[in-house]
Design a binder for these strands. Structure first.
Lengths: 244, 244
DNA sequence: GCGGTGCCTTGATCTGCCTCATGACGATCA
DNA sequence: TGATCGTCATGAGGCAGATCAAGGCACCGC
């Protein structure tokens, strides 16, 4: 993700508040050294959310920004009649709260137990002002998210149901992480979200998602160990299918 | 768009290379003063493209970044079998080339005669390094684009054909600009792109776009002066329809 | 064990948009 | 003026995915 790394990641001494943080090397924190990180961490708070709990709602005043340190979140939006679109899932290390508006455009909810580092926007902005290399890091993150969103536009605008589900599995695999709610057997992909979340991410109904997964299983491209655990049997065919 | 303006826009003397630039106040240039702007401008080149001509292709090495000063561009991507998705349209003042990758993920083409300020990435990065407030401006632009892309995800994932077309017209009106290829009568919306471009932006077929426009016309929500010129008759109903 | 609950899967039918086909209209040019 | 071409509009029918409906399975409290 880093195209222009500023410096190597700092090595932290035991006892540092971020010593145990599994997400640090993926997070915005990557560009901070031990002292900066200590100062940064102490300017915010750590918050925990159970599965299903909410971080903020669409329309809420954007008072804070967050770093997800463990768990998985979904970013979603509702139409007045209840139709829902999920704009993305967040994994450990992801930054939450990129916006230039006063209000959040999307709702953020935990889909498994999650922990976040929370910072008020005022304090965060002040910290960025005094640590200018963070600005570049933020730009890189925003550019990365933009590329991902545009990729998803292609999926939603032009791909078939089968292509969407195949793309989703590959995307999930690329983001595979040990903090997403437990580890499966070696090589298994953990699917931390429900069929309903997958459907609302892919612009499909849950019945269609279920049918396409069954079809992939029937044609021996994947194996479904449990409903939340998937293993690739033929990744090459899956990649081919994902691109049409 | 600016939430944290750094300074007011500079006033340029006649004879300044950017004096006539209609896009300056919308562009990244907004945060540069007269001297900075002169230096910036001279570090790049001005390029022109006729309607249909290409700026870069998906997969091309990302050697330059651009500022669109006049005209309209489309950002698109093709699937192997020819299906096309347009990720967005660019209007004067828009920045082109946000990416952390070595290669462009989308193709950029002019849909009307257009002019751009072109900068090599190396020179642009160097200029940003010596003008740190540009970094924040870039972040704001990327955040803004991200919000727009996510809004489009909702449209593509969950809206009906009628809702998509209504949303598109409102979006176009919000971006209305005198540089989009000519001015219509007062209150008319210029639609610089073809039905085919609209369809590939909205994830529909051109026949469906045409039918929905005819339906809006028949129900007296819009009037079609020419195929490229639309006037709102009942904007409130249109907004209602756009959100379901 | 047993009934209840929530989520997932599978089947049958329906429908909104796509596909295919045709015609209208304007622009360009002989 | 008429021929040709490209874009847009409109009509008829088909299909991918939605909708409606039923059943399976894991988990939970009693």
């Amino acid at each position: 993700m880093e195209m222009r790394p500023i410096r190597a990641a700092a090595v932290l001494e035991a006892g540092h508040p971020c010593f145990d943080c599994a997400a640090r090397l993926q997070a915005i924190c990557y560009v901070l050294d031990g002292n900066e990180l200590r100062e940064f961490k102490s300017s915010g708070a750590t918050v925990a959310r159970a599965a299903g709990e909410n971080i903020f709602f669409e329309g809420d005043t954007a008072t804070h920004v967050y770093n997800l340190t463990s768990g998985v979140l979904r970013l979603s939006k509702l139409l007045p009649d209840g139709r829902r679109q999920i704009a993305g899932f967040l994994f450990p290390g992801d930054f939450l709260g990129i916006t230039m508006e006063d209000q959040h455009a999307f709702t953020a909810e935990a889909i498994v137990p999650s922990t976040l580092c929370q910072f008020s926007r005022a304090r965060f902005d002040a910290f960025v002002d005094t640590h200018p290399h963070l600005e570049r890091r933020l730009y890189a993150i925003a550019a990365h998210e933009l590329a991902a969103a545009r990729q998803q536009l292609v999926l939603l605008g032009r791909k078939t149901a089968a292509e969407r589900v195949a793309s989703f599995l590959l995307l999930l695999d690329a983001r595979r992480t040990s903090s997403s709610g437990g580890e499966g057997l070696e090589g298994d992909i953990i699917v931390p979200m429900s069929r309903s979340d997958i459907a609302d991410y892919l612009g499909l109904r849950i019945e269609t998602v279920s049918r396409e997964l069954s079809a992939l299983k029937a044609s021996r491209l994947i194996r479904l160990t449990t409903t939340q655990t998937i293993r690739f049997v033929n990744r090459a065919r899956l990649e081919q299918m994902a691109e049409g």
